[in-house]
């Protein structure tokens, strides 16, 4: 226990400020306040891999590391679409995942925010459209916001999520 505690103290707090988005750089407190105003609680994100190469997943996972500390801003990932406010979708949509993506989208309560992640999510990327791929997420479900990049950096993902929230009416 002593070694664990001393390592925690030695590591310190690494969390960095939130990235600057189009509407200005919100402080963590300001973001938490506006989330509270709109949702009355933390923003819950459900991620779906609709056929990605798993590169975007690695950067989404990085949002939880101590540098980006997404949970500290009042945003958390949830296991069920029923608990989610925002759907974060990666991939081109493979034809084998189309049905599962639609069902997940349907399971999210209104208003459904959808953020398409990565060049593949935005336009199909290198995979494009083929017998096995429908291309962009918007070809299958309505998309509110897109974060490009191959893969997008965690900072870009965080900025994209904040922009999607801002556009939905929260005063970020």
């Amino acid at each position: 226990m002593f070694t664990i505690l001393s390592r925690m103290i030695h590591t310190g707090i690494l969390t960095e400020p939130l990235p600057t988005v189009a509407v200005g750089a919100p402080s963590t407190e300001a973001l938490q306040r506006s989330l509270w105003k709109v949702l009355g609680r933390a923003l819950c994100i459900r991620h779906v891999d609709a056929g990605s190469c798993n590169g975007c997943e690695l950067e989404i996972q990085a949002l939880n590391n101590p540098y980006y500390n997404i949970e500290g801003t009042g945003i958390k990932f949830v296991a069920s679409p029923r608990h989610a406010d925002l759907l974060l979708v990666t991939g081109p949509v493979s034809v084998n995942m189309e049905g599962a993506l639609r069902r997940t989208y349907d399971a999210i309560p209104d208003p459904k925010l959808v953020v398409a992640v990565g060049d593949c999510g935005a336009c199909g990327g290198i995979f494009g459209q083929s017998y096995a791929s429908w291309g962009s997420i918007a070809n299958v479900i309505p998309v509110n916001h897109t974060v490009t990049g191959c893969p997008p950096t965690p900072a870009a993902l965080l900025a994209g999520i904040l922009q999607a929230i801002a556009a939905s009416g929260a005063e970020v």
Binding site: G51, S52, S94, N96, M97, A100, F127, G128, Y131, S133
Partner: peptide
């Protein structure tokens, strides 16, 4: 498995 099949061999 096979859900993320994107047809890479054809591509």
């Amino acid at each position: 498995l096979g859900y993320t099949h994107k047809g890479v061999a054809k591509l």
